[in-house]
Computed example of a mutant assay.
Amino acid sequence: MTNPFLTLLNDKGTLLADGATGTNLFNMGLMSGDAPELWNTDQPQKITALYKGAVDAGSDLFLTNSFGANASRMKLHGAEKRVHELARVSAEIGREVADTADRPVIVAGSVGPTGEIMEPVGTLSHALAVEMFHEAADGLKAGGADIGWLETISAPEEYRAAAEGFALAGLEWAGTMSFDTAGRTMMGLTSSDMVKMVDDLDEYAPLAFGANCGTGASDLLRTILGFSAQGPERPLIAKGNAGIPKYVDGHIHYDGTPALMADYAVMARACGARVIGGCCGTMPEHLRHMREALDTRTMTHPPALEEIVDRLGAFSSQSDGTGEDAAPARRTSRRRRAAS
């Protein structure tokens, strides 16, 4: 039986995913240090508003408010025994929003990193990591998620453990990593490394894979080009931040305008991505512009690195992490205008 995610992707060719979870919830009153997942039961109307914000802006897919729903992270809030419940409720709320939409919308069950370092570098064993991911995935499936969605992973060992956890729950999934360290993940993985890792997962492999978060939209597109260069068979996901984070009046502000994110969306598709959304800083207004751009604009060639810089801003590092030609690191006047 074909997964609804693949069905919709095949029907539409390209899917618009959602934007930020944390940024939007902070704007609704979430305090720094609080667990967003507790709002699934304490403030369900705000989680409904979060999901509807993406759907009303034109998203074909949104992630549930369950990024930190694992025993390690929830233990910090005395809620480690509530992981399954919180994951389930996040998906139940999402299911209601999707089922009342006027078009097909995919509920993607968000699963983030455990927050611990896996063996042999750290102390988290493979078996325990699989157990934590399984618990979250099982809750998401029970709540009606169409697909699991692993995101912001840095270590290949954790990605593999999550793959097994999803398999144990019987939940098909997609998974992204964060390339935020000079073109590599924090644990040193390059874009080409990830393609090989995904292929090697065999029966545990995701339906789609890609990159999320990281630094700015420019860096993320360079990573997507790295994926595409390997000729992967699975659909690619691009979920970049809305510009670069800056401290403004004591708060983190992302400088990416809706117009910049519209350019990013069109360029991400030209780079080879078929599921395109935003990450930190991406608000419904950004998504509306991205939706319009994907529906009305075309780009027939993958952008050159210089074109990405000119349209979206400088890369944060000279190299994409693979030792190939260094990327330009200049900022253009166009970038400065976009950020103003």
Score class of each variant (00 low, 15 high):
84 H>N: 05
168 L>R: 15
281 G>P: 03
227 F>C: 06
286 H>C: 04
149 W>V: 11
213 C>N: 07
167 A>F: 01
102 D>Y: 07
205 A>V: 01
253 H>D: 07
322 T>N: 11
30 L>Y: 09
180 D>E: 15
46 K>D: 13
23 T>Q: 04
253 H>S: 10
35 A>L: 11
261 M>E: 04
189 L>D: 07
165 G>N: 04
199 D>L: 02
268 A>T: 10
196 K>I: 10
140 L>G: 08
155 A>V: 01
65 N>T: 05
181 T>A: 13
233 E>H: 04
109 G>Q: 03
197 M>F: 10
8 L>K: 12
13 G>A: 03
14 T>N: 01
18 D>F: 08
121 V>D: 03
182 A>G: 07
299 M>C: 10
48 T>S: 12
90 S>R: 08
290 M>Q: 08
318 Q>T: 13
15 L>V: 00
260 L>F: 04
269 R>S: 02
69 A>T: 13
119 E>S: 08
191 S>G: 07
140 L>F: 09
172 E>C: 00
58 G>M: 12
26 F>Q: 13
34 D>R: 08
325 D>N: 13
118 M>V: 05
151 E>I: 00
2 T>N: 12
171 L>Y: 11
281 G>C: 03
265 A>M: 10
174 A>Y: 02
32 S>P: 01
213 C>Q: 08
64 T>A: 09
327 A>V: 13
83 V>Y: 05
32 S>A: 12
160 R>C: 11
136 A>P: 02
73 R>G: 03
298 T>E: 15
285 E>Q: 14
180 D>Q: 13
243 G>T: 03
340 S>A: 10
274 R>P: 00
195 V>K: 09
190 T>Q: 02
128 L>C: 05
272 G>T: 01
25 L>V: 03
316 S>C: 08
